[in-house]
Each structure stands twice: as C-alpha cells, then as structure tokens.
Amino acid sequence: MLYALCLLLFVVGLYGVVTKKNVIKIVISLVIMGYAVNLFLIMLGYREKGVAPIIDQTTEAAKFAQTSVDPLPQALVLTAIVIGLGVTALMVAICIRLYERYGTFDITEMRKLKG
C-alpha cells in the first residue's frame, strides 16, 4: 500500500516530465521523482517497531542488532540526495542560460526560435 503511494508520487513526477513544456516545470518534476525514489529506498530498510541506527550506551549489542533499522539504504540515500542537489543546481543554471538566450522557458518556443 505504501509502496503503491510512492509509485504514484513517482508517476506524478513522470507525468510532469512527459507532458509539460516549461523547463522549470520539468526540473520540478525531476525533483519530485527523486523524492519518490529516495522515500521508497528508505521504506525498504524500515523494520517494524525499529529504532534509529544510532548505538546507545545502555542497550546491549545483540538486542540492538535485532531492533535497528537497516543503515545501508540510509547511507546510500544520503549520497543520492546530495547528488540530487548538485544536479538540480546544474539544471537550474542551464535553465537560466536558456532564458537569457531565448527569452522564454517554453521548449517548443525555443525549438521555433532556433531556426
């Protein structure tokens, strides 16, 4: 059920990428798709009634290993979020340059103007 909602969020982003003509809208849709994928990966590592993967001094190691959520997807998603920030910055920079060059955000207009 939760996985399906995540997929729905991804599909909404994909819809924006496929149908929208505004460049900023396409960037926004890509960002939304990134959120959906990150959320799904974190969900895969969740354990029922789990605790955060930070070791407390009071709990013993064996019990912690039985209750902790999976730290590996969290670390990888952290990497993915950071890379997403860099990619978004690069895309927005390209959008600003496109606007200065063509005076519009619309990709169909850009195609017409190129000649």
Partner: peptide, 9 residues
C-alpha cells in the same frame, strides 16, 4: 521511518 540523518539532510 527512523532515519534522522536523512531527515536533517
């Protein structure tokens, strides 16, 4: 989902 690091970032 018990991922405070990811939430902060």
């Amino acid at each position: 989902l018990r991922a405070p690091d990811v939430a902060i970032i």
